[in-house]
Amino acid sequence: MLSERDLQRYERQIRIFGEGGQEKLKNAKVFIGGAGGLSASVSLYLAAAGIGRIRIVDHDIIKLSNLNRQILFTDNDLGKRKSDCAGERLKRVNPNIEVEAVTETINEKNVSKLVANFDLIVDALDNFATRYLLNRAAHVNNIPLFHGAVEGLYGQATTIIPGQTACLRCIFPVAPTSSTVPVIGSFCGIIGCIQATEVIKYINGIGKLLENKLLMLDGLNSTIEEIEIQKNPRCEDCGKG
């Protein structure tokens, strides 16, 4: 049930999907893997939109070189845990939602437990090895996964619905070599905003999602295009193996 304050707070978006839609956001539980550059915009906008419960997971501490893009944090947070600072920031943005900050490295052993009982998973990670873990957990637990990644002024996003769409391993069967990549904060923010919008649309059942479509953003040339993608029926994560 929405309060009078909720109705005022979310008035502009209730005009889009109604009070029922806002109720859906309030009842939604979203898991966010990573509290870095993508997560900054995803988590802030999901918190502001009134997602009822957010769990944000990261193992790292805040370094000076993070601050060009990880706008959840300030200079005063250097050396502190990312998840803790992210959790505090999200609670300040929206005190009416539940935020749980978890300082853990997502691994094969804990991933299913971490995402259990969540309705949606946001991939705001910085490496494919962990992305594959979330991809598999999403399919084992039948939870939609919202992928985003960025490198330089190029980025991609897609929405993965278990049982229906191509999964991350169908599209990218082999992980790129893990390394720190060049990133401009504002461009990272664009990809994260696309992921957040997909989450809100999915919860409300509105519009067309990036299902079986890879959105390709080219910040250098200011273009956005889609690539049609197909499921691999023998995929080890989403197919018959």
Binding site: V174, A175, N232
Partner: peptide
């Protein structure tokens, strides 16, 4: 290079 995305009609050639 194994990590490149090379798709034929939407399917990765790895598959």
């Amino acid at each position: 290079k194994p990590y490149l995305a090379i798709l034929k009609n939407g399917k990765h050639i790895y598959h």
